[in-house]
């Protein structure tokens, strides 16, 4: 009988605590706890990393893994540059079509943060960082890797710490765009980006400069070099999926996926990753692709928070 009382007491206390936690009443307690444990956790992480490398080295892969990580960061940076160039081309075209539109993204202001903990439950993809609302963080802010590609968003900000929801978390959705063709940097040198040719008018419509009213967007074509929009969703099975793509889209592997900026929660042209595989089913209304994230999400030690971009608060506030 006492056992039943014990279990009842645990259940009652736990449920009350969950309710309070959801109302954010216990945030100061969690912030205090992280303040106390963060130095120890950081120290242990720093100590564990070489040990982890050592075990990898036992299988004769230590140096290769480290070198591979550095090369991946370089590739990530180059991919980001390339994605930005592609986006710049597209953007110049669009700006020329809609005269008077000014640059919507000011110079980025970034804040570096150390990763102090990871969620190990396997049910979520979250990391804890040592920056919080006291440093200017707010929930929904965009988090980038050192290479500048998208890592996730701030999910919960305490005073001195924050939990970041990675893009591979099941609750993460990002409006994305993909350039359907494979990357071909030799065809788009930087000098060619500056002045695009005159845009081709849509048949049957007046020139865009004379018509501020929206014109119908032509259907995306895989061979046109235009971006195709979709939604990048976190998935526990595949990591990251690009969904809601047109059903007849021909999508090459290694195509670059970046943020589209739609919805206002993410700035435009942040590199998300590359297309790993494409799934098209006859009965499915959309094409789906698996994305390889550009940032190495499993071994993050430092991330950058984009302070200068204020995400649109679409949910409730």
């Amino acid at each position: 009988m006492r056992l039943v009382w014990w279990l009842t007491a645990i259940a009652v206390v736990s449920l009350m605590s969950i309710a309070l936690s959801e109302r954010r009443t216990l945030d100061p307690v969690q912030n205090l706890s992280l303040t106390v444990t963060a130095p120890m956790a950081s120290g242990l992480r720093d100590a564990a990393r070489p040990v982890d490398d050592m075990f990898r080295g036992i299988t004769d892969r230590g140096d290769i893994v480290r070198e591979n990580r550095e090369l991946k960061e370089q590739v990530e940076g180059l991919q980001k540059t390339f994605a930005e160039q592609q986006d710049a081309q597209q953007r110049v075209r669009e700006l020329e079509e809609a005269l008077g539109v000014k640059q919507g993204r000011p110079e980025d202001q970034l804040l570096a943060a150390n990763v102090i903990a990871e969620d190990t439950s396997g049910l979520k993809r979250m990391i804890a960082i040592d920056r919080g609302s006291g440093d200017g963080l707010d929930e929904g802010m965009v988090v980038l890797s050192r290479g500048g590609s998208l890592v996730g968003t701030v999910a919960r900000a305490f005073e001195d710490f924050a939990w970041v929801r990675l893009i591979t978390d099941p609750d993460s959705t990002v409006n994305a765009q993909v350039a359907p063709g494979p990357p071909q940097p030799q065809q788009t040198p930087a000098s060619d980006v500056v002045i695009p040719s005159t845009p081709t008018p849509v048949p049957g419509s007046t020139p865009p400069s004379a018509t501020p009213a929206p014109t119908p967007t032509p259907a995306p074509r895989a061979d046109s070099g235009e971006y195709v929009r979709g939604v990048a969703e976190g998935d526990l099975r595949h990591g990251l999926l690009l969904d809601l793509l047109p059903p007849d889209l021909t999508l090459a592997e290694d195509s670059l996926v970046s943020t589209s900026g739609l919805g206002g929660n993410y700035p435009r042209a942040l590199l998300i990753g590359t297309v790993e595989s494409v799934e098209q089913r006859p009965q499915s209304p959309f094409t789906r692709a698996t994305i390889e994230p550009a940032a190495a999400l499993s071994g993050l030690d430092t991330v950058l928070i984009l302070l200068s971009f204020q995400p649109a608060r679409l949910s409730g506030e």
Binding site: L3, W6, L7, I10, A11, V13, S14, L15, M16, S17, I18, L20, S21, E22, L26, V29, Q30, S33, L34, T37, A41, A117, D119, T120, S121, K124, M126, A128, A155, R156, W163
Partner: peptide
């Protein structure tokens, strides 16, 4: 303690660990 260091709502782990006693 576990919930204080993870992103779960505080109390989740205490509730989830309770069956261990049983």
């Amino acid at each position: 303690l576990r919930d204080l260091a993870t992103s779960d709502p505080l109390g989740t782990s205490a509730l989830a660990l309770a069956p261990i006693v049983l």
